[in-house]
Amino acid sequence: MKQHTCQSRPRFAITALAAAACLLAATGAHASEGFRMRQSPVGMFGGEIAAAADNPGFFGTASLSYINIFKVTDNNGDGIQIDARTIKLPTGTPSGGLVPNGTYTLNVPEGTVDFDQKQTQLNLVAGFMTEPMWGDGRMAFVVNLPLIMQSRTVLAAQGLGTVSPTPPQPLGPLVGGVAAAVNGQIQAGVADFNAFNNAKVSGVGDAELSAVWLHNYGGLKVAAGASLFVPTGKYDKNRGPNPGFGDFYTLRPGVAVTYALNPSAGSDSWDRGVTLAGRVAFGMNTTNQDTQYRSGNFVYLEGAVAKVSGDWGWGANLALTQQVTDDKDQGVVVANNRYKNYAFGPFISYKLPGKSSGVNLHYSRNFGSRNAIMTQALQVRFIKAW
């Protein structure tokens, strides 16, 4: 999860170009993972948690998601911004040493960043569950390939800096000229940041390959395994939005359980058709070879409840993604930059004629985010077994 501010950098050299260089380091550095993790920002459980998952053979899902990324948060949970700062003006050379560097400063106000991204994503999932038993359970092998369209609109703005203290009249034009040059570099940096981010892109995302062991203990079902995310996605470090994350891998082992409170078909009690579900996973990232940036490892937790009545099911899920180790940029630890994101949302499902297919509609929204994108998403998922 990459993020930088000028405050996290060493003191920069006092030149007319320094302010722009620092601004670009504070903003353009989002070319890598950019407030994202290789973990969906919305929950994964839907109404199908109440259905059996132990039939051997081929199966598949297709999910279409409409995602609006409406905010990007900093370490305090506030929207990202360009920091206010004080720059020592390099007046030594233009004045021939008469006005030493740092005699006057340029006080640059805080800048704003308005962020909006629309994304349409089609996930194609295909898998096979084995007929032979492996330790009283079956193995499932799954491939998940996303196809992504992104359109990002970013407007960053920062006011002109003012000089202090006020120079005497004879030095006014000289100091003002240096200040104007530095202000010009800052505004050029803001313009470059906007150009870097404002783009429409589409392409294949990073594929997810999974192997899962499934076992049924009556009303309790267990799925344990691991996913490997591979860099098949379209990625360019010189632009903001990207379908892919870059040239690195993510390994995510985990376990999910579902429990039917009352599996008896003849019961009329309140818990008939109620299923509880939980999931825990741990993600480990390698170094992005495109940027030499390594995002920290993360934990994913999710819980859900579903109620089924006839062909209909409904429920809700709650998820948390929490980064547990620090990022590293060129091998150097990046402090105060850990990703955290909650998601909550309801879902409703319908079993199509024939017992081997269904449709799930799910709405989800992020909250409590830190160093993360905040999204609201609407997803339609079609599930089919053959």
Score class of each variant (00 low, 15 high):
5 T>H: 14
5 T>I: 12
8 S>E: 13
8 S>A: 13
9 R>S: 09
15 T>M: 08
20 A>K: 15
20 A>N: 13
24 L>C: 09
27 T>L: 06
29 A>K: 10
32 S>R: 10
34 G>F: 13
35 F>Q: 02
38 R>G: 02
40 S>Y: 02
42 V>L: 09
42 V>S: 02
45 F>R: 00
46 G>K: 01
47 G>L: 05
48 E>A: 13
50 A>H: 04
50 A>K: 07
57 G>C: 05
57 G>L: 08
63 S>I: 10
75 N>R: 11
76 N>C: 00
78 D>S: 05
78 D>C: 00
78 D>V: 03
83 D>M: 12
84 A>W: 05
88 K>S: 10
91 T>C: 08
97 G>A: 08
98 L>E: 01
98 L>P: 05
101 N>H: 02
101 N>C: 04
106 L>K: 02
107 N>L: 15
111 G>S: 06
112 T>R: 05
113 V>I: 15
116 D>A: 07
119 Q>V: 14
120 T>D: 12
121 Q>K: 11
124 L>R: 07
128 F>R: 04
129 M>S: 09
129 M>I: 14
135 G>T: 14
136 D>L: 14
139 M>F: 15
143 V>A: 13
150 Q>V: 08
150 Q>I: 14
155 L>Q: 09
160 L>C: 12
161 G>W: 02
161 G>M: 03
166 T>Y: 09
168 P>C: 00
172 G>V: 11
175 V>L: 09
177 G>S: 06
180 A>C: 10
180 A>N: 11
186 I>T: 11
186 I>Q: 11
187 Q>K: 12
189 G>Y: 05
190 V>P: 04
195 A>Y: 05
196 F>Q: 03
200 K>H: 07
202 S>D: 12
209 L>E: 01
209 L>M: 07
214 L>Q: 09
215 H>R: 14
217 Y>K: 03
218 G>N: 03
223 A>N: 07
226 A>L: 11
227 S>D: 11
232 T>H: 05
236 D>F: 12
237 K>T: 08
238 N>M: 07
242 N>E: 08
243 P>R: 00
245 F>A: 08
246 G>V: 09
252 R>N: 10
261 L>A: 00
267 S>F: 09
280 V>T: 03
282 F>Q: 01
282 F>G: 00
284 M>E: 03
286 T>I: 13
287 T>D: 07
289 Q>N: 12
289 Q>D: 12
290 D>R: 10
292 Q>K: 15
292 Q>L: 15
293 Y>I: 06
296 G>Q: 04
299 V>W: 13
304 A>C: 08
305 V>Q: 01
305 V>P: 03
306 A>I: 06
308 V>I: 03
310 G>A: 06
314 W>V: 05
318 L>N: 01
320 L>D: 00
323 Q>C: 09
324 V>A: 04
331 G>E: 09
347 F>C: 04
349 S>V: 03
350 Y>S: 03
351 K>W: 02
353 P>T: 00
357 S>K: 12
357 S>D: 13
358 G>P: 06
359 V>Y: 08
361 L>A: 09
365 R>D: 03
370 R>L: 13
372 A>S: 14
374 M>S: 11
376 Q>A: 06
380 V>T: 11
381 R>F: 06
